[in-house]
Design a protein around this nucleic acid. Structure first.
Length: 293
DNA sequence: CGTTGATCCTGGGCGC
DNA sequence: TGCGCCCAGGATCAAC
């Protein structure tokens, strides 16, 4: 379940390798995740050069010569850059330098749905067992990118120009439980189930509270908590619960830092009372009944 | 109009 | 040991 910190970590791990490289060959798996006809994708990427990589919410945007290649990783998507000349195994690998760090770069298998071979021999692999991911193309114009994202995504929470007023305006009058509102990508882009629970813990707010009934100071705390939790997520290289790895196959470290997510029945790290798990908005939701009011 | 719920998909965990 | 059941969840769309 790659959320903003995981997608950003993948972006950063690709940045030293991808820009400047040319695509020499494309291979496909299940066409389900392709939101553009296969022949169009082939025509768009073959012989094209990667220029830069951007992220918008949980989407990755690869600027090619004449297109943006847009990838969403859904729940189980992995984007790895592997070198077929090096041996890799389906399980865990030792880090080539330290010999210690765990990494996982799956060789292409039946879950690998897109492979872009580059002119340096490496292969950008999109692997997505649950097939909730998406691959699409956009015209490289500002206009086309804006048209695609405007109806889907709210502001970028880590942008320097992200303002409290915008958050208050988008979250403020909604009657739904505040957690459901945080999960709405049009309110703030990039927050998913894990970081929503963590941000609400950080802000000391119960996920069931109705957004419009929060006090102003609580909304302000939540605004800060969302940014803080996402930033820490990035600093720790994302959260690996099951599938997530960066493009080098490295797992994240933020799972060790989680305060409530996945900790039902365990003691709260702040007060020692048991963390509770409920269902809210069809999602597993974790919180501390004493620290969150 | 705002919000809720069903849907897609597969691996893994669990119970029997 | 093995089988079958059910759950996890992001975005989208239908329905209330």
């Amino acid at each position: 379940m790659p959320e903003l910190p995981e997608v950003e970590t993948i972006r950063r791990s690709l940045l030293p390798h991808l820009p400047g490289r040319c695509v020499v060959e494309v291979r496909y798996g299940d066409p389900k995740i392709l939101k553009v006809p296969r022949h169009e994708l082939t025509a768009a990427v073959t012989g094209s050069r990667f220029q830069d990589i951007h992220r918008r919410g949980k989407y990755l945007l690869f600027r090619l010569d004449r297109h943006h290649l847009v990838i969403h990783l859904g729940m189980s998507g992995q984007l790895t850059l592997r070198d077929p000349r090096l041996e890799d195994s389906p399980g865990f690998l030792r880090h080539p330098v330290t010999g210690l760090q765990k990494s996982r770069q799956h060789p292409p298998d039946r879950h690998t749905h897109l492979q872009l071979t580059l002119d340096d021999g490496r292969v950008l692999c999109l692997r997505d067992p649950r097939k909730f991911g998406k691959v699409l193309l956009l015209d490289p114009t500002e206009q086309a990118v804006k048209e695609f994202f405007e109806p889907r995504l709210g502001p970028e929470p880590l942008d320097a120009d992200y303002r409290l007023e915008v958050f208050l305006q988008r979250l403020g009058q909604r009657r739904a439980p505040v957690k459901s509102v945080l999960l709405d990508q049009r309110v703030v882009a990039g927050v998913g189930n894990i970081y929503a629970d963590e941000a609400l813990f950080e802000a000391g707010i119960r996920p069931t509270r109705r957004a419009h009934r929060l006090r102003r100071h609580e909304k302000v705390r939540l605004f800060e908590a969302v940014r803080q939790v996402l930033e820490r997520g990035i600093r720790f290289g994302g959260t690996t619960l099951r599938d997530y790895v960066d493009s080098d196959g490295r797992e994240g470290g933020f799972q060790e830092e989680l305060q409530v997510y996945g900790r039902a029945g365990e003691p709260c790290r702040r007060c020692g009372k048991e963390v509770v798990r409920i269902f809210l908005a069809q999602r597993g939701t974790h919180f501390c009944p004493t620290c969150q009011v």
